[in-house]
Amino acid sequence: MSGPGYRRVAVPVDGGDLAVGVWEPAGETKGTALLVHGVTSSHLAFTHLARRLPGLRLIAPDLRGRGGSHAVRGPAGMEAHARDLVAVLDAFGLESVPVVGHSMGAFVAVVLAHRAPDRVTGLVLIDGGLPLAAPAGLSAEDTVAAILGPTAARLSMRFRDVDAYLDFWHEHPAFAGRWTRELEAYFAYDLVPGDGGLRPATSYATTVDDTIDLTTGDALREALASLDTPTLMLTAPRGLLDEEPGLYEESRLATMLAGLPAVRHQRVEGVNHYTLVMSPEGADAVAPAVAGVLAGERSTA
């Protein structure tokens, strides 16, 4: 499948420059969306999705502490990421856009819509954005382990080369039988030099700060309490290790959604938390949702 043009640019924020991926059509642009990735991810998580949205310009930063933005200094948290996203919109001269967030990116998107409501025309939350089930009374590290498990544990690991890192992910249950060239590029991009070899670009300290903030901080709670931005939430039936249930068990999710009239929900069958975005099948399901949000924006303009 031929894809849109792709480039990376740097956008200054407090503490450094964010790396921002941009996919855009060669001809007329029918609309623009802002894409926000997950807690230990990067903008390349959206490669499959970008190829399924012809005619759209997609702007996807690496959040501070991740990917090409791993050297950005300063505190993290949902509000810090939201401020960075406003800086990205300003850098591209964008007044307001629909925002698509996957995993932690969905939480950031909700906070962005609350802190800068005039910049967000609609939300697509992909397996994130509403409170996660987490045991109470845990330390910061134990909370991260309870929610992210091996996803966080790998951040302290070192790999002799790219092939060793790819071998690590080949064994991951979320990607068994679902390996693609796009995944290889995504994982290779994740690596930076570290003591004793290569390490994942994501900062463990930033991951802790973000996970604690989205589970116990005020920013998300306040944002959800006043959420009136038109929102579509897509969830996966399987979790980070391809286990059932996924991050959002159906009865618990139904209880939360009952108090959030702005949020519509759609379960996407046959995928897990990762492959809902990072596979051809998942992207096939997500792309019409994103296109629909943009189409709704144009029809009411």
Rank of each mutant, 00 (worst) to 15 (best):
P25S: 12
T29H: 09
Y274S: 12
T29Y: 10
P12A: 15
G137S: 10
L247W: 13
G149R: 11
G67C: 09
E28K: 13
E222L: 15
L276S: 03
Y186K: 03
V39W: 08
S42E: 01
G27K: 09
M78D: 08
L191M: 00
R160G: 09
D118G: 14
L53Q: 02
G270E: 03
Y189G: 06
G259Y: 02
R238S: 10
A174P: 11
V39D: 06
L232C: 03
G246F: 01
D84Q: 02
G5T: 12
T229C: 15
A140F: 07
E244M: 13
T229L: 10
V268K: 00
H48A: 08
K30M: 12
V162H: 09
D118K: 10
V36Y: 01
A301N: 08
G270V: 02
E171P: 05
V11R: 11
G55L: 09
A225P: 12
R83C: 09
I126Q: 02
Y189P: 00
T211L: 11
A283I: 02
D163L: 06
P237R: 03
S41E: 08
D62Q: 07
H273T: 04
L63F: 09
A109H: 11
I147S: 02
G122A: 14
D167G: 09
V268P: 00
V9I: 14
L130W: 00
G194S: 04
A45G: 13
P237D: 07
P12K: 07
M233W: 00
A146Q: 08
D218P: 13
T207I: 11
E79I: 11
A87L: 05
